[in-house]
């Protein structure tokens, strides 16, 4: 079979166009659907809820942690939890702090999901089982979850817990009582607190109240609301009598953690198109150069038997 130069180049052109179309299809399949627009793309809604935790008012009575267990239908509802796990979505930790006159005193710190404004777990989740709702809670759809546990790595607060003992394990975490919020109630922990240490309300108003409290009670609080800016802000906010680092709160920057990964992921279609185009062009160029140089072009459809490999 003889092939003229023009036939060859026409075939190459068709090949190249085919590759281009394939690359286009590939990348368009990867373009984000608008309905999947991510929480960290938008601004915080003015109506989003928040929880303000005033550590100076907490007596460590554990009412909130037990109410949390009950409302989330966790086992052993009367047993005080000592950490975040699949049995307890919140717990109260006792921290011994040395005060200014050298005495130790206890500060009780309630832990639960911070329900971040730009949650890294939501950004990381392979199948979109985690979602930030406009109302504030970061909710989890157990039916979608494949148990990859990337959310556990992404969370800067170490919150999501995995069912290690279950052969078909799932993730557990506080969802800010999204179900109760939908029915016009406050989260179970807030409703259970007898000391006014937990306050539920509009996040922006809570922040304003927190700063007013700091100003009007000199010496009672450190001048910081934890969660106002951390990793882009969280729905749960803390007021503390001592610096947050004393209490083991992680020192995180103000930028949302998913910012780099999301910036790269958004470029996926562009990267795919660029690579496919460059590789196609390189293929055609190198093939052409070999033809011009008169080297034998390898055509794998040839009929002659050849070497072993």
């Amino acid at each position: 079979m003889t092939t003229t130069q023009s036939e060859l180049s026409r075939r190459d052109l068709i090949k190249g166009m085919g590759c281009g179309v394939a690359a286009l299809m590939l990348s368009s399949a990867m373009v984000a659907h608008p309905e999947l627009a991510h929480a960290s793309d938008g601004e915080e809604s003015d109506s989003a809820w928040g929880i303000l935790i005033d550590l100076t008012r907490c007596t460590g009575c554990q009412s909130c942690a037990l109410a949390c267990k009950e409302t989330n239908d966790r086992p052993n509802p009367n047993q005080t939890p000592i950490g975040l796990d699949t049995d307890a979505y919140s717990f109260v930790e006792e921290k011994q702090i040395e005060n200014s006159v050298g005495q130790t005193e206890s500060v009780y710190v309630k832990h639960q999901c911070m329900n971040c404004l730009h949650p890294a777990c939501v950004s990381a989740c392979t199948v979109g089982a985690l979602r930030k709702t406009p109302e504030g809670p970061v909710v989890y759809d157990a039916d979608k979850c494949i148990g990859c546990r990337y959310c556990q790595y992404a969370c800067p607060f170490g919150v999501p817990a995995y069912e290690w003992e279950n052969p078909l394990g799932l993730i557990h975490k506080c969802q800010m009582c999204a179900d109760r919020l939908a029915e016009g109630e406050s989260p179970a922990c807030v409703a259970a607190c007898p000391n006014g240490a937990l306050r539920f309300g509009n996040r922006k108003q809570l922040l304003a109240q927190a700063h007013a409290q700091i100003t009007s009670n000199p010496g009672r609080y450190v001048d910081k609301v934890y969660g106002e800016y951390e990793v882009g802000g969280t729905s749960v906010l803390y007021l503390s009598p001592v610096p947050f680092s004393f209490l083991g709160f992680p020192e995180l920057g103000d930028e949302p953690n998913p910012r780099y990964a999301e910036a790269v992921m958004k470029q996926t279609p562009a990267i795919a198109l660029t690579v496919a185009s460059v590789v196609t062009a390189l293929h055609l160029f190198m093939q052409r150069r070999q033809q011009v140089n008169g080297e034998a072009t390898v055509h794998i459809t040839s009929q002659k038997p050849g070497d072993e490999l």
Binding site: V31, L36, A124, C145, M265
Partner: peptide, 14 residues
């Protein structure tokens, strides 16, 4: 499930 549920921001999904 990654064929059924999409999260375009997730590196693992890609």
């Amino acid at each position: 499930n990654f064929l059924l549920f999409y999260n375009m921001h997730s590196p693992l999904f890609e």
